[in-house]
Amino acid sequence: MKIYITKYVASYPTDFKKVIGSKIFRTEFTYGLIEPRRDSEFFPNRSDEKIMRSDVKEAVVLINELLRKSNFKSTERTPLFIANGAFIEDSNKYLQRVMKVYETFTDELGEKEKIHRIYRACPPLIALETLTNSTMSYVAQYSGLKYLNSTFGNTSQSFSLVLKESLNTLNRDDVDRVIIGATNCSGNYSFLMNSSVVGYTTGWRESAGVGLLEVVKSDTIPKGALCEIKDVKLGLKVPSLTEQKIDRKWNKIAKIGESDLIICSGAFTSKENQKDLEYCEDSGAKSKSLFESYGNLGSANSLLGIIEGIQMFDASIATVNVVDRDIYGRESIIKIKKC
């Protein structure tokens, strides 16, 4: 029994903004945004839309496009696994009302009144807006997927975990196909989270990205199969929190070069990306990265890397290794082969 990707859908950032991170600390970053397709027949209803991030809205549209292609029946037991990045697009906007309240605080104001003002200012659906499983639950709600599920997050390694989970499920369970996806949202929340961990450097670039794949098991190559998944490997590294500084060097545990092409990800700046490409090319294979087009796509890095690999299959490229190292320096390698 082999595992194949038979369908994919994805959306990429179209609008890029360069903004100030911190005036005091002189940081700035560029981030790419996805523009959800409001004209789609699958666009979520107005009451749901109000509490959804843009990547979640687009995921709802994409799942329906994917399942339409798949002739999906809602009675089917099809598992759904999602990798998720940050859960807040713009923490400034999201907490604006609460922070405005702090502006009204004076020394004379009692604690009780302060707390009451914060209470009144707090958006009523804030718990749902920041729900960590919102992509998975909305995708389920708008598609009818009801079976085994999980959401992994929130570094870029999470998509490799999702893919591994899907392979295990197909090998073990009485199911023939699994839907997997990754959504990453960009913005100041993600920038603040990631740049604090690895250390801010100039040229910081992150983007939102969304994609979904249909993964099936079969004894023979399914009609329309896009690639075979040969392997998913994690780097077997335990990041140390005891040592304070992060080690994001490639640890060279896995052999990344046994393929016609390497698609790598994990960099947050062009300089870092250049080093990654050099490291990959040292292994003897051609290498490519989506960084210059989009920046770091977080939890969607490897999924969009797979799609890029599929699109690049030709007479000279029959095998692609999609390699990523996450913010804690954990490597993952996904090996795909042209059908």
């Binding site: 100030i20 997050g153 603040l192 250390g199 500084k245």
Partner: peptide, 26 residues
């Protein structure tokens, strides 16, 4: 400035693996 950006940047030591607030979930 954007207060939340300044607050988070100030509380978190740049380049130290552990953020004080707003850590990656992993």
């Amino acid at each position: 400035s954007i207060p939340i950006n300044e607050l988070f940047t100030r509380i978190n030591d740049n380049g130290i693996k552990l953020n004080s607030v707003n850590n990656p979930y992993d």
